[in-house]
Design a protein around this nucleic acid. Structure first.
Length: 404
RNA sequence: GUAGGCGUAGUUCAGUUGGUAGAGCACCUGUUUGUGGCACAGGUUGUCGCGGGUUCGAGCCCCGUCGCCUACCCCA
């Protein structure tokens, strides 16, 4: 027997229904916010992710599904969605159309070569949105509000954490500041953090090590060292969230795992799904379009993890629906098909091809959760009629096949 | 990559100090020759993950291996 690869899952029945429910709910809301669908390839040149996601991230450092294809191209299964959308945006020269806004939503599989655990798969699915050309913090607010709408529509509880990562004006001086702080207490920090001081000092902030965290209480906070523009935007964002009654907490240690974020960063978390608690994350990435050879274009985006959300949504109980058609004698089976074709114009129809006893048909109708069980037996076949039973109201009647 | 837990029927699981495997659910049949869900009665289903070792004898003990889960790391 051949099994699915490690960290990859098949979805069927109730699970696949839930998956589709999440995607269609998110699409409906994204459309109301003016987003249109973008489909980009799953396979991209590896350097796209090296340049956008960043060499220092774990995603690029050790989690990429990367290989050489038959044409000797260095390619990679996308580990996240934003890079491909931005690449597409630049390739279509939409960056040249300054003053225009572009809003895209996407969904599909992402791949990261990690150890699977609860809420973490090697192939997983994200729904995401990217908004280009709008530098206003109102757009950051609107995108957070939209995610809130999606979770509300799905009936999911969450906590929202926000932070500002600053911009090229205020981040570098802060970074230097932080490095000197970290260097001073270097000996007491964990091994990983010592490595991070050189590779990505910002990441020390969200180290899970308790001792590190206790030392970091006194570390300089970026939120207190923002430039005027970043500070104004962050304050505006919190004001907007408050007036919209969206609860949030400022998490000064919230650092997104991808290098391209600046200014607003946010994460939606749930405490009901194990240690992989982020159900959505995103932020502003005003410099990424330039990094990928486009004209400077501000942008904000987010992605939500469909499998993680699947753990949280309850589907309404399915009710009986449609028709089950069967015959009790082999020669009557043929006459089911025109009836099925006709009914399918408006209803769900299941046809049983085998001749069976009435009892077996009734059970069959139960099994496919049909509302009506319709059977042609000996009498009905002779008379050109069909027997129909409403399995909910327990009413039954026999009508001409032409009236079915 | 590291650590812990678990692999027995379609499924959820039990299986004593080692004596050639069991239950619920599901499925099939019947009680009812044309009336479902409920009830009752019967019935089918296993390379005990795989390979080796110890033993008269291994689901159980030992070694190895593969897989799954959880956690670290990191992230959606």
């Amino acid at each position: 027997m051949i099994n699915a690869l490690r960290g990859m899952k098949d979805l069927t029945f109730e699970e696949s229904e839930r998956f589709v429910h999440i995607v269609t709910t998110a699409i409906g809301i994204a459309k109301k916010y003016g987003y249109s669908y973008i489909e980009t390839p799953i396979l991209e040149e590896t350097k796209l992710f090296r340049r956008s996601v960043g060499e220092s991230s774990d995603i690029v450092g050790k989690e990429m599904y990367q290989f050489m294809d038959k044409g000797d191209n260095d390619v990679c299964m996308r580990p996240e969605g934003t890079a491909g959308v931005v690449r597409s945006f630049v390739q279509a020269k939409l960056d040249r159309r300054q003053n225009e806004k572009f809003k895209f939503y996407y969904y599909g599989p992402m791949f990261r070569y990690e150890r699977p655990q609860k809420g973490r798969l090697r192939e997983f699915h994200q729904f995401g949105c990217e908004s280009f050309g709008e530098g206003s913090v109102y757009e950051d607010f609107t995108i957070i509000e939209m995610i809130g709408d999606i979770f509300k529509a799905l009936g999911i509880g969450y906590k929202l954490q926000i932070n500002s990562l600053g911009c090229p004006k205020c981040m570098p001086p802060y970074r230097e500041n932080l490095i000197s702080f970290l260097t001073e207490c270097k000996d007491e920090l964990c091994e990983d953090c010592n490595r991070r001081i050189d590779t990505n000092p910002i990441r020390v902030l969200d180290c899970k090590n308790e001792k590190c965290q206790s030392l970091l209480v006194n570390s300089p906070k970026l939120i207190n060292n923002l430039c005027e523009s970043c500070d104004n935007d962050f304050n505006k964002l919190t004001t907007l969230l408050q007036s919209a009654n969206i609860d949030y907490e400022v998490d000064t240690n919230l650092v997104r795992g991808l290098d391209y974020y600046s200014k607003t960063a946010f994460e939606f978390v749930s405490d009901e799904i194990g240690s992989q608690s982020a159900i959505a994350g995103g932020g502003r990435y005003d410099k990424l379009v330039e990094f990928l050879d486009g004209k400077p274009t501000p942008a904000v985006g987010f992605a939500l993890g469909i499998e993680r959300i699947m753990e949280l949504v309850q589907m309404p109980e399915t009710s009986r629906e449609g028709y089950y058609l069967g015959a009790m004698d082999a020669e009557a089976v043929d006459s089911l098909f025109p009836l099925a074709s006709k009914k399918r114009a408006t209803d769900k129809v299941t046809v049983e091809y085998g001749a069976k006893k009435l009892k077996a048909h009734l059970k069959g109708a139960d099994k496919v959760n049909a509302r009506y069980c319709a059977v042609i037996g000996e009498d009905e076949f002779r008379d050109g009629t069909i027997w129909v039973k409403d399995l909910v109201e327990k009413e039954e009647f026999t009508i001409a096949q032409s009236e079915f």
